[in-house]
Structure formats: structure tokens, C-alpha cells
Design a protein around this nucleic acid. Structure first.
Lengths: 127, 127, 127, 127
DNA sequence: GTGGTCTAGACCACG
DNA sequence: GTGGTCTAGACCACA
């Protein structure tokens, strides 16, 4: 895995370390990261995105605690073997559920018709 | 407007006062709140949702700064008159854009096919 | 005196009742309102400026307490006789002193040269 | 920047947090605070002026919302980079306009000759 | 160490 | 009755 695979937006409300953890969770669930795959080193990620190494380290630590990653002595972090490779589609969809619910609520508050929202999202998903 | 119109989720990452402001923004843009409509008093909202009055007051203050609300001295807050009533659909859709973009990105990371996401969202929007 | 002589800005930080009192103080000090001059009735002022009569009443009450106005039974308020007509120029200038000081401080914070500020003010005073 | 650069007057009509925001606006516009300059910490300002940290925090938050300051997570606040350094003189003068207009109105109500006001102000600006 | 949020409670200003 | 401000103190999130 390359450090450039991670998308970091430092000026967001969501803290950086959580952006990393949740992105890892999705990439692993989706199979883009397979068990055993090595991760870029802390300093590599930190250097590439110009963020504090401690922040990356913390994210890796939490991902390890969560069972997403494993520490291999002298080599760095790899995607955990215990992790069944890609989850099935409905499991992956379930990870999006909270976001979908919130989106639906906001669309309702904006009195937007369903098809307008769906068309716009379809366009974005098509890219 | 009734205090029950606002949805507050206290144990969310997003701070309460911002939940209120952004909800007001959407309700006004969508036309559910029209210019001149009175808002429930700070104490009313605070009592109904069991939160601190100052938190509500802060939200109202920011909404006023943003031009969403106007203070009527000694009376309370009303939806700002300067605010052109409901915005048109594409303007309202634009308010949802950041969320849609993020959702699309996450779906991509999860390797979810577009139609699976769209079907699920359509179901939620239908309610 | 005519109700239109008063300038009221309801959407200002400064409370309305104080706008009235301080304006009366200046108009009397400057001689535009002479001892014995009648003031427009509370409801006249309130109607003309579309503000709450209680607010006007409160302002008149405070002006009376301060010795600016006198209540004449059945006739309304008049400028107090005890008030020596117009004050001399340095006394009137002293009333502006706090505002002048604050202005000078702000100009300093903005690093504005004295002559730029003075030229602009001269222009405004010329009208 | 030093905490002593800020002038706080606790028993003024203008609330403390707004005194801070507006002072920052002027100091940045005038160039005394340049983009990237660090600000004294909330606790530092609060301690120095013997006011509540939350009051300072509120001011900083509003200044951030306004685009004057930027938060550097875990470090503190700095003057926003997006802010074009010092504004030119006429822009800075424009920030003073409302105050100048009000002053001119008051001088008129006091029937003060322009040159008397200008001479007094010149004296204050000279210091 | 930094700022952010919330609470509880007091007091004020306004109408 | 309305909103506004400030305080004191607690706790959290981030680096």
C-alpha cells in the first residue's frame, strides 16, 4: 500500500487520526487491502501528508486495537490475517448506513425530492 | 415553530449548538420555516430537549450572525426577512453536496456498486 | 419639537431608549431644544418610528430623572427650565470626548495616519 | 503577539468577547498582526486580563468563523494565511466609517463647529 | 500543552 | 416574558 492511497483533509471537523482509522476499515472491508498487505510506515504517511507522525502512530495503534492491523516486529504494520478478507456486500453496505440515514434526514429537512438526490448521487458514484 | 421540530442527538460528535444551526439552515432553505416565523424561546427548546439554555442561546446567536435569524428585542427570534424565502432546488441540493461527495468516496473505498447504494438510499428517502 | 427630529435605529446594538435619552441630551446642550420647548407625545414618537410606546415612555422617564425634561400636568413633557440653555462650546465638546478617544484608539490599531482620518471626518462634518 | 497587546475594558457596554474580535480585526487589517503570527493562548489572555477563559475562547472561535484566525490543532491559533496581509488605507478607513458617521451626527446635534471637533481629534491622534 | 463543549447558576438589559 | 453575558468548574479531543 502506498501512502498516497490515504485521503487526509487536515482542516476538517473530523480528527485526522479517525479519518485514517475509518478509511482503513473501509479499504479492508472492501478488499482493496488484503490480509498480510504491508502498510506505509508512520513517517512515510506523516511526511507525505505533512501531518504529525504522532497522529499517524495513534491511528495505527487504534487500528491494531480494533483488530484491523497487526504489528510485525522489525517490519512494520500489515493488515491483520485474522481479518476475513473482504466482507460481503450487505455487511459493507451496513457500514454506510449511519451516513445514509443522516443524508436522508437532511434531504427531508431541505424538502428535496428523492429522485433529485438519487440522480446527483448516481452521477458522483459514476466517476 | 415548535420545539419538537428540532432533532437533537446529544451523544454525537457534532456539537449540539451546531446541530441546531445547521438544522435551521436546512429548514429555512427548504421552506419549512418561512421569513417572519417565530422560533421557540431559548428556554423552551432547552427545557424540551433537556439541554442547557446557554447552548441554545449560542446556536441562536450564531444563526443570527449568519443572517438566518433576527432578534426582535424583548420578543424573541424570528426567521430573517432578508432571507429569500425557500431557495430553489439546485441551491438546496448544493447544500447537500459535501455530504454526497463524502458518501461517494466511502462507497468507493468499500467497493460497493452504485446501484446497491442507490437502492438503499431510495428506500430511506421513501419513508 | 417634531417627532421626526429624533433619529432612531432599531437594529443597533445601542438600546433604543438610550438612543433617545442621549440624543435629547445633545440637542438640549446644543440649543436646538430650548427650555420650555414641548416634546412630542409618547404615542406620537412611538407611532412615527414604529417602536414600543413603553420604550419611549421609559426614555422620557430617565430624561426627567436626569433633569433634562419636566413633566407638565396635562400638557406633556417640556425641556426643563432649570437647564441652562445651551452650554458653552468646551462643555459640549467634552460630551464627545469618550467617542473621540475611542476613535483615536481604533485609528491607531488600524495604523491609519492622522490626516487621513481628519480629512474623512472633515468631509462628513461639512455636509 | 503578546497578551498585553489586547486592551480589555470590562465595564463597558460592549461585551468583552466582541471587544477582542473587533480589536483583532483592526490589528490584522492594520498589519500589526501578520498572517501566520501566533496568538497568545486562551489561558494566557484570560490570566493576564483576569477574565474567564471561556470568554476568550468564544472570541477566538468567532474570529475563526469570520476567517480572521486559523486553528492549528494541538498548537493554538494563528492569524489566517488567507487573509491578505495588511489592507490598503482606504479599506482600513472604511472600517472606521460607521464610527465617523456617528461622530459627525453627534457633533451636529451638539451644534459644534467642524474645526473644534477636528482640532480636538487631531490632538488625540497626535499622541 | 492547546482549544472546545457543556453545565449550573447568577445577573443584566430590554420591552 | 425575551435573549445576552459572564463565571466557575468539569471533562474531552488533539498533538
Amino acid at each position: 500500500m502506498d501512502a498516497s492511497l490515504l485521503t487526509i483533509q487536515p482542516n476538517l471537523v473530523e480528527p485526522i487520526y479517525r479519518q485514517i482509522v475509518e478509511q482503513l476499515r473501509r479499504l479492508i472491508a472492501g478488499g482493496q487491502l488484503a490480509p498480510g498487505d504491508p502498510l506505509p510506515s508512520v513517517r512515510e504517511v506523516a511526511g507525505f501528508h505533512a501531518i504529525n507522525p504522532m497522529t499517524v502512530s495513534r491511528a495505527y495503534g487504534m487500528a491494531e486495537t480494533e483488530g484491523l492491523l497487526e504489528r510485525q516486529r522489525g517490519k512494520g504494520m500489515v493488515v491483520a490475517a485474522t481479518r476475513s478478507a473482504a466482507q460481503n456486500q450487505s455487511q459493507r453496505l451496513a457500514l454506510l448506513e449511519p451516513q445514509l440515514l443522516e443524508l436522508a434526514r437532511h434531504a427531508g429537512e431541505l424538502e428535496l425530492p428523492a429522485d433529485a438526490v438519487l440522480r446527483r448521487l448516481a452521477k458522483l458514484l459514476g466517476d
